[in-house]
Design a binder for these strands. Structure first.
Length: 819
RNA sequence: GCCGAAGUGGCGGAAUAGGCAGACGCGCACGACUCAAAAUCGUGUUCCUUCGGGAGUGUGGGUUCGAUUCCCACCUUCGGCACCA
């Protein structure tokens, strides 16, 4: 018998597996495929415990699927472009490329120490020119499809990261940068966008995918669909002034209009008398940050423009106000205001003494415009509304509400508007004023404008010799050689685009690059794609719910338009893990000093123990604070497994009942662990294996089970543990003379007859309180259960000679006697 | 404000087509081994108790023979959205 030394055994098996290509994952049409994917890491320098927490259960489940008979692909790569590399360059004068690729090298080694079944021949690195060539190619394809465009607009800019951000990367009430937490500011810049909004409706359809409810709700909120109508008002100057409203039924109650301060028509409609006031108001609005402007509790401000609009439903002449509670970025940047039935408009009208006309009459009677304390938003019946008077108003949204349906029909009949749907989702801003990203493959020619770089010139390589200075402009702008080029159309002098792409662009299609990471002809090999795609099981953190997970869905839909794939959803199933916190229950960070280093743990306990603990210590979806003492449980488990599997078992006083009990436990455990792997309940799977260990320990001590039952128990335990602790199980499997490799064995099967309990503990209750427990054979008829319960001494005592009023018998479980 | 998730021993967590609350583990206590300690092994471990029992899954109600599980109201924590027309 040897002692368990994972520090020696684990690297030995890792080398063996690699030498044998045990985890090479190639097309095999004889087996069903399973594409398991876990979110790829950013090469920040060290693999931290959070990576282990995300990856090892994903690996265990991929291994389980493999043992279940699937041909499993489980690749790994690096999301290698991004800001930290550039910040390191600025701070420590290391080139981002050097820094990044050194980190990748280091993390590869750390990932190997995990013993995961990654197929390293499928590795993809997004900062490698052979990868970003195709990121650039996709950019061009999106232009061709009309899904990428350049626009000047007020965009979110992080003054700390010195770059613009997508709307999705601006978080929280204070509108801070998702990366660094700095509040963002607005800047007017010409930037590249992807038309994610084209797919707003399709992105709301989750019927093809099995994703967590939470993610679906978050994406649904994010996309923010509203049903209503577009209605065209006309200004007195004759300009069309379209607005969007979810309540077209209240059009007859519109008493004024409001334009956002940035609205292009503001100058046209403003009267000479009001010009100065409007100018002042606009300047003041510009000075306010978004945080101030968008806080709902702030008192409404605004100014009369002096202009008027005509309500198309009744010809009413109503004043146009300018106010910052209307946002330029949503709808048309202008609204009709119906103070009687919208709280925001109501507050505005009361403050500025504007007219209020109720058009919905609640059941309780007519509203009094002068007395109402707040707007009325409930159901009722339409009044003061000409053609739709008398129509019922329900609480429903859109056409389901009879009054809204009537209004929409009226608008369509009179050519005044049409049914419309508006989304909160904005197009994806992908330009970044940073160096360490994939260059946007576009050239600007004075003659031909923005011209995409021809395919044969891809990739547009990042030059290495650049100055890293956080100027708010891309460092590439100051690189003369890069900047100056020729127009692909006329050959005349032209300038390159110097912004790079959002790194979320790189990670939007990485699951496809794994199929053929060295392919120079296409982003991925269609033969590989036909077999492996789409991803069957995706795992990763919830923090990407409205970023990466929306982008990659958009990307796949665009790839469908490109004819590259024939499906609409990139990942059929998704499971989110939680987060490991420090022992102090806080997010791990160097500054807090609560970081758990997996390398040290592996050194001390071995990777198998770390893996087992990470799967055991909490529910995976939930995460929680790390606890250094807790790892002793899994450590003892593996030490016991080591002793049990090496034990030269010889029965002394063989007992049929003990043998039966062990076999039952073995088969019950096989059943339980399989169920738990299916449902990602890894903590209870490990607990079940611990129970089997306990039963085997009893048998070992008592030497009273048959040799066959012992061997069955031990080897089943090794097989069940193999996905969780791949090294120790491989070693013990080999030591027991079983065929290499344990990871190529079939998942064990259970026999229901053996797993079945043959006695049950009957619970005897009186008025719902447990008064006795009686062991009876499984399958005892109800009448006998009842008789046994009534015969109990304790029951007789509590009944005090009285007849029970009622006896409830639950077969195989309990008897409840109602006194 | 709106939407969603969650509240169970000292701790992490089990158990919900309504049926033994606390699986498994950590920790702790006692015992064994040891000169001693660690490790290991064994026993115990929700609380209260006059040792008969009683109380107990955030709080208060309800349905039921029976509720951690279902219903209503509320409290707390976390997450998302929020002047989105």
């Amino acid at each position: 018998m040897s002692s368990y030394t994972p520090q020696q055994l684990e690297p030995r098996w890792q080398a063996q597996w690699q030498a044998d290509g045990l985890y090479r994952q190639v097309i095999d049409h004889n087996k069903p495929k399973h594409y398991a994917l876990t979110m790829l890491p950013y090469p920040s320098g060290d693999l931290h415990i959070g990576h282990w927490y995300a990856m090892t259960p994903s690996d265990a489940r991929a291994r389980y699927m493999r043992m279940k008979g699937y041909n499993v692909m489980f690749p790994m790569g690096f999301d290698a472009f991004g800001l930290p590399a550039e910040n390191a360059a600025i701070k420590r004068n290391i080139h981002p490329q050097t820094w990044t690729f050194a980190n990748i090298e280091r993390m590869r080694g750390q990932l190997r120490s995990m013993g995961a079944m990654f197929d390293w021949e499928r590795e993809a690195v997004s900062a490698d020119p052979s990868y970003y060539k195709w990121t650039q190619w996709f950019f061009k394809k999106l232009i061709e499809l009309g899904l990428a465009y350049r626009k000047l607009s007020a965009v979110d800019f992080c003054p700390n990261c010195n770059t613009t951000l997508a709307r999705e990367q601006v978080w929280g009430d204070d509108r801070h940068c998702e990366r660094c937490g700095t509040p963002v500011i607005k800047k007017d810049l010409e930037q590249w966008f992807f038309k994610t909004t084209d797919y707003a409706e399709e992105l709301l359809d989750f019927s093809q995918i099995d994703w967590p409810e939470r993610v679906k709700v978050m994406q649904t909120n994010w996309i923010g669909r509203s049903e209503g109508a577009n209605v065209v008002f006309k200004t007195e100057q004759g300009d069309e002034m379209p607005i969007f409203t979810t309540r077209p039924d209240t059009l007859w109650g519109a008493t004024f209009m409001v334009m956002a301060p940035e609205h292009p028509l503001v100058d046209t409609i403003t009267s000479a008398e009001q010009a100065e006031a409007v100018r002042e108001y606009r300047e003041q609005a510009q000075r306010l940050t978004d945080i101030d402007r968008e806080s709902a509790d702030r008192e409404k401000t605004g100014v009369f423009s002096g202009g008027y609009a005509v309500n198309p439903v009744n010809g009413a002449r109503i004043p146009i106000w300018v106010a910052d509670y209307v946002l330029m970025g949503y709808g048309f940047g202008a609204i009709m205001a119906v103070p009687a039935h919208d709280q925001r408009d109501f507050e505005f009208a009361r403050k500025f003494g504007l007219e209020i006309i109720p058009v919905i009459q609640p059941e309780s009677g007519a509203l009094d415009a002068d007395a109402m304390p707040e707007s009325y938003v409930g159901p009722g019946v339409m009044v003061n509304s000409g053609p739709i008077d008398g129509t019922a108003v329900s609480d429903d949204k859109g056409r389901k509400n009879p009054s809204i349906a009537a209004a929409i029909d009226w608008l369509a009949d009179h050519n005044a508007g049409e049914e419309a749907i508006n989304y909160r989702l904005r197009d994806w801003l992908i330009s970044r004023q940073r160096y360490w990203g994939a260059p946007i493959p576009v050239v600007y020619c004075p003659e031909h404008g923005a011209v995409p770089v021809p395919d044969e010139q891809l990739p547009v390589l990042l030059p290495e010799d650049v100055e890293f200075m956080p100027t708010g402009e891309s460092p590439l702008r100051f690189h003369e050689e890069f900047l100056h080029t020729e127009c692909p159309i006329c050959g005349g002098p032209a300038q390159r685009e110097t912004d790079t792409m959002d790194t979320f662009m790189c990670s939007s299609w990485y699951q496809y690059r794994y199929l053929s990471p060295n392919d120079d002809e296409a982003p991925f090999d269609p033969t590989e794609g036909a077999y492996w795609l789409p991803v069957d099981q995706y795992t990763g953190g919830i923090e990407h719910a409205t970023m990466h997970l929306i982008y990659t869905r958009f990307f796949t839909k665009a790839m469908r338009e490109m004819g590259l794939v024939d499906f609409a959803e990139p990942m059929l199933a998704l499971h989110n893990q939680g987060m490991v916190l420090g022992e102090d229950n806080e997010k791990m960070s160097k500054s807090r000093g609560n970081v758990v280093a997996p390398d040290d743990l592996v050194q001390q306990y071995g990777a198998d123990t770390v893996r087992t603990y990470l799967m055991f210590f909490t529910k995976w979806d939930q995460g929680g604070p790390w606890n250094y003492d807790g790892i002793k449980g899994p450590q003892r488990l593996l030490l016991d497994v080591w002793d049990i599997a090496q034990h030269a078992y010889a029965p002394q006083k063989e007992d049929a009942q003990a043998t039966r009990n062990l076999r039952r436990k073995t088969h019950q455990t096989i059943r339980k662990v399989g169920q738990d792997f299916e449902s990602f309940s890894f903590n209870t799977a490990v607990a079940a294996i611990m129970e089997l260990r306990n039963t085997l320990n009893d048998a070992k001590r008592n030497q009273n089970v048959s040799a066959a039952a012992w061997a069955e128990g031990v080897e089943s335990m090794l097989l069940l543990l193999a996905p969780i602790a791949p090294h120790i199980t491989e070693e013990l499997w080999a030591q027991r003379g079983r065929p290499y490799s344990i990871h190529q064995q079939s998942w064990p099967q259970w026999d229901e007859a053996i797993a079945k309990e043959d006695t049950i503990t009957l619970i005897v209750q009186i008025n719902g309180k447990v008064r006795d427990r009686i062991d009876v054979p499984a399958g005892t008829p109800e009448a006998d259960l009842k008789a046994a319960a009534l015969a109990s001494d304790n029951v007789q005592k509590h009944l005090e000679g009285k007849e029970p009023r009622k006896v409830i018998v639950v077969k195989g479980k309990l008897v409840n006697i109602v006194r």
